[in-house]
Design a protein around this nucleic acid. Structure first.
Length: 656
RNA sequence: GACUGCGUAGCUCAGUCGGUAGAGCAACUGACUUUUAAUCAGUGGGUCGAGGGUUCGAAUCCCUCCGCGGUCACCA
């Protein structure tokens, strides 16, 4: 079936052969030294006026990657980080020894070239090479030189290939650096200092989001990767480290990936003492405006289908007024959620009737205002209901002093006059804790020490947060957040799976289990949803569970408790760990889960159709006759660490 | 998570009604030598994502799984 590739026609083999040939000729394919004194773009600029066909005596050395070779090596397109220039290799100006090196050359190699500047009669600025060297031999083929690399997954997974082939990718990611650098300098120039606060948070706070959890072994403690730096930055303001602090860094949110969301993303968050949200508004719009000028050299740029002008001052309008403007409904006139709900329903919105006034205003805003905010606009004075971290508005207790800046229909900045009353902050935290206890895993935790810090006194402070990735998307007209992140989060490539060996997996288990917290374990029974006979299912479950318990080598892995009733009768050996019953769509899903259990070293048993008929002898034989894939799985029983089992069984629904 | 589309050579893509797997680039051999996606002649290169099914016969039809994209939902 598999035919061996003819060595010299496989691109990689051919390149390896040339590399070996270089070595035999006494040339290193990876020399240590390099020399260059010019960049392609500088030369293109400097010799812009050079006439077609003109030769100069100016000698330069360039270095870069070979992107194309024409006329058997006479013309080489060389690309460095600044741009491209053609290298002209001709017997008129090169020795035989130099020309001989061409036979080692491939597209993709990194070379240097030294020679004189000329412009060919066809108008291409070139270096008439006297010598050249292969500085790094490339041994894998580059994508199609014309179409480039279009496979989206490969562009992100192997960004280096994308960068080699795609000018747009290089440009966008370089602009990202420029934008971040600009913002940093802008903030520093106005007296703010950049600080670094922990990424590992013992207490999750500062934003409502689902966190990543990790574990510090020596401290025997779980930590959360930060979802926001807010509470630490405010502590620095309390301490008077500076009146203005900011942090540019990565935040982590354990949520879905989309065209506008990456699990780790970059924000700038800052706090400035003795400022309120009106002051911050001016700072933000000036910063973004200057960034646009810096990157584009003009204040109006194309984003998608729109021309967007960033000239300051930006339009300001309160959230309620903006809703009134678009819908004709004045929500300030409604004092109850019921009235607001009715008005929104009349307008045509389908809402959860349990929403409060502020949430209804927000829903109206999202529906009829947000998409229309193409030109930069500050939306101000949000309902208090939806802004637990902002200070109550000085003129209206239903509102807070908050603004969000929108552009192209996206939010790019969120800012408040910060809440600095410790008692209100404590009450807000307690509300969050109550939500967490009722099952909201995005709710924040009570940070006692932060409240304590507020009791020492946080001066009147304005704060802001900008999502850098989204800002870069706007300023580079990028459609997907992954285009502005060098290495976006991707599902790890599946490891090449050799046939799993159960015995080996079991040995591993013994060690793993000893370190697992007892509270983290559970039983999971998954049954085949296609099986209609309840009797067969129950039989299968019974077998699977009994088998699983019988299989355990160390009884301490389980925890069974004797329950006693009012009459003093004992109900022995009830599992301390929960037993979860799930339903799979079919046998094949059970088979897949079983393979995952083996790969993960999770204790398991399964039960198949071949185990239902006859006595053990017949069943053993019937099972032996079938390949794994041919077996019809009725039930799968697992026991182990909760998180691990969740990973294996997450696609199954609860059996009801 | 739901819906939807895609997966064929190293890269970019064809493949009709189910009937021997195709092209361009890249690679190899040679020609040519001021080219610009160089050109010309020839050569080699395939587990058609994986597994199963239907069929005399499957890249093609059916089922399952895997991977990726897009839209929607939550979030910035």
């Amino acid at each position: 079936m598999s035919v061996e590739k003819t060595p010299l026609t496989d691109p990689e083999e051919a390149k390896l052969a040339k590399r070996d040939a270089m070595k035999e000729a006494g040339l290193s394919p990876y020399p240590h030294h390099f020399k260059r004194n010019a960049m392609a773009a500088d030369l293109q600029k400097k010799y812009k006026e050079l006439q077609n066909g003109a030769e100069t005596e100016d000698t330069v050395s360039v270095a870069g990657r070979v992107m194309a070779v024409r006329n058997s090596g006479m013309f080489i397109d060389l690309m460095d980080t600044s741009g491209r220039i053609q290298v002209f290799c001709h017997a008129d100006s090169m020795s035989e020894d130099e020309l001989a090196k061409l036979k080692f050359l491939d597209i993709g190699d990194i070379i240097d070239a030294t020679g004189t500047i000329r412009r060919t009669p066809r108008g291409e600025l070139s270096i008439r090479a006297v010598s050249f060297n292969i500085l790094t031999k490339s041994t894998l083929p580059l994508p199609d030189k014309y179409h480039g690399l279009t496979d989206i997954e490969q562009r992100y997974r192997q960004r280096y290939i994308d960068l080699i082939m795609n000018e747009d990718s290089r440009d966008t990611l370089r602009k990202r650096s420029q934008i971040i650098s600009f913002i940093r300098k802008f903030m520093e120039d106005r007296g703010a200092i950049e600080v670094e606060t922990p990424v590992l948070h013992p207490i999750m706070g500062g934003a409502s989001a689902r966190p990543f959890v990790t574990h510090h072994n020596a401290l025997s403690s779980d930590f959360f990767l930060r979802v926001a730096p807010e509470l630490y930055l405010k502590r620095l303001i309390v301490g008077g480290m500076a009146d203005k602090v900011f942090e540019i860094g990565r935040l982590f949110r354990n949520e879905g990936i989309s065209i506008k969301h990456n699990p780790e993303y970059t924000s700038i968050e800052g706090y400035e003492a003795y400022m309120d949200y009106n002051d911050i508004m001016k700072v933000i719009e000036e910063c973004v405006y200057q960034a646009v000028l810096h990157i584009h050299g003009k204040d109006t740029i194309t984003i998608g289908e729109n021309e967007v002008c960033f000239k300051t001052p930006w339009k300001r309008i309160s959230m309620v007024d903006a809703v009134t403007e678009k819908s004709g409904i004045d929500f300030m006139a409604f004092n109850t959620a019921e009235q607001a709900y009715q008005a929104a329903a009349d307008y045509g919105l389908k809402l959860d009737p349990k929403l409060n006034w502020g949430q209804i205003v927000e829903e109206m805003f999202d529906a009829c205002v947000e998409p229309t905010l193409i030109q930069p606009t500050h939306i101000t004075d949000h309902p208090h209901d939806i802004s637990p971290l902002a200070k109550i508005h000085r003129n209206n207790p239903r509102l807070v002093e908050r603004f969000e800046s929108f552009c192209n229909g996206w939010e790019i900045c969120n800012a408040y006059t910060e809440l600095n009353d410790p008692d209100i902050q404590l009450a807000n935290f307690e509300g969050q804790v109550a939500q967490k206890e009722s099952g909201d895993d995005e709710a924040q935790m009570l940070d006692d020490d932060f409240v304590t810090a507020l009791r020492y006194g946080l001066p009147p402070t304005g704060g802001y947060g900008i999502g850098i990735d989204r800002l870069v998307m706007l300023l580079t007209n990028s459609h997907n957040i992954r285009d502005v992140i060098c290495f976006p989060t991707l599902k790890p490539k599946a490891q090449s799976s050799s046939a799993p060996r159960i015995a080996a997996a079991d040995n591993d288990n013994n060690e793993v289990w000893q370190s697992i917290d007892e509270n983290q374990k559970r039983f999971v029974v998954v049954v085949n949803g296609k099986e209609e006979s309840q009797g067969r299912i129950l039989n299968a479950v019974g077998h699977a569970v009994a088998g699983l318990v019988g299989q355990a080598e160390t009884p301490e892995d389980f925890c069974f408790v004797d329950y006693q009733d009012a009459d003093g009768n004992i109900h022995p050996s009830i599992s301390h760990y929960p037993v979860i019953a799930l339903k799979a769509k079919n046998s094949s899903q059970l088979k897949t889960a079983r393979e995952k259990a083996i790969a993960e070293g999770v204790l398991f048993t399964d039960f198949t159709d071949t185990m239902t008929i006859g006595k053990t002898k017949e069943q053993v034989e019937a099972t032996k006759e079938k390949k794994t894939a041919e077996l019809d799985f009725l039930a799968l029983c697992l026991f182990g660490e909760r998180d691990k089992l969740n990973e294996i069984t997450k696609k199954f629904s609860l059996y009801k």
